Simulated assay, not measured.
Amino acid sequence: MEPTSYDVWFREQVRQGLKEADDPNTQWISHEEMKADWAKQRAALVERIRLQAEARKAKP
């Protein structure tokens, strides 16, 4: 069976991921750090949406 372009891409992504995971220089972050970072990004996005909505309401 001939691999599709997706199969080729997927296998390359897995190969790169395994290589990076095995690299002793890879910097890992904890789940807690990641959750905190996403929470901060989410809060900034919600605030930006809120400000845009307020600005639209203020326009005549």
Rank of each mutant, 00 (worst) to 15 (best):
E47V: 01
W38C: 10
R42K: 14
M1F: 13
R11G: 03
F10D: 08
A36M: 05
E47K: 13
V14D: 00
R50A: 09
E54F: 08
L51A: 15
L51K: 15
A36K: 09
P3H: 04
W38Q: 15
R11W: 04
G17E: 08
Q13H: 11
I49R: 06
K35I: 10
Q27I: 11
A43L: 00
S30K: 00
G17K: 06
P24Y: 03
K57L: 06
R48K: 15
V14F: 00
L18K: 12
D22A: 13
W38N: 14
K40M: 11
E20A: 13
R56E: 12
G17W: 05
E54Q: 15
W28D: 00
A39H: 09
Q27P: 04
V14S: 01
W9V: 07
V8F: 01
A36E: 09
K19P: 05
G17F: 05
D22L: 11
A21G: 02
V14C: 02
L51C: 09
Y6R: 13
R11N: 09
H31G: 14
A21I: 03
W28N: 01
E33N: 03
Y6K: 11
N25R: 14
F10P: 02
Y6I: 10
A44E: 13
M1G: 13
P24T: 03
D23Q: 00
A43Q: 01
H31P: 14
K19F: 12
V14L: 05
A55L: 11
L45I: 10
L18N: 11
Q52L: 15
T4C: 02
K57G: 01
D7T: 03
R11K: 08
Q27R: 13
A43S: 00
E54G: 06
W9Q: 09
P3A: 05
A53F: 06
V46M: 12
E33C: 00
E33A: 04
S5K: 14
A58N: 05
A44C: 01
E33D: 06
V14W: 01
K59F: 02
E54V: 07
L18P: 02
N25V: 04
Q13A: 14
A36W: 02
E47G: 05
V46I: 11
R15P: 04
E47N: 10
A36P: 02
N25C: 07
T26F: 06
Q13K: 15
I29M: 07
E12F: 07
K57P: 00
W9N: 06
V46F: 09
S5G: 12
D23T: 00
E12M: 11
R50E: 08
E12Y: 07
T26C: 04
R48E: 14
E20T: 13
R42T: 11
L45D: 12
R42A: 08
A44Y: 02
V8G: 02
R15M: 08
E54I: 09
M34H: 13
D37V: 05
A21E: 05
R48H: 09
V14E: 02
S5Y: 10
W38K: 15
Q13I: 11
A21F: 04
D22F: 07
Q52D: 14
V8Y: 02
G17P: 02
L45N: 13
E33Y: 01
E12H: 11
P3W: 03
G17D: 07
P3Q: 05
